[in-house]
Amino acid sequence: MSERKATIASRVGLHARPASIFAAAVGELPLEVTISLETDPAEDAMDASSILSLMSLGAANGDVVVLRAEGDGADAALDSLVKILETDLDAE
């Protein structure tokens, strides 16, 4: 199991546009990735490819989330996902 922490950079938090960009990126990976708030227990982690789950996670700007994945290439995949979360997607 690989695990990464990321700080949400988008001003509005992990909301509509940022969430859709992130969910689409996760959806393209051949891995199952979960996401949870740093403050929540690991068993509450949700499917990171689900835009609805991402939105209901309610991660605000500055919140820290934990990404988890298992399997080949998990580390590289998580690194790329962290990069997306730590970019202010609204500013683009």
Binding site: A16, R17, A23, G27, S50, I51, L52
Partner: peptide
């Protein structure tokens, strides 16, 4: 476009 892309993702949301 952003709205529609997000809506498309919701339509095939795996959780849903």
């Amino acid at each position: 476009r952003g709205i529609l892309d997000a809506t498309a993702l919701m339509a095939e949301d795996p959780g849903l």
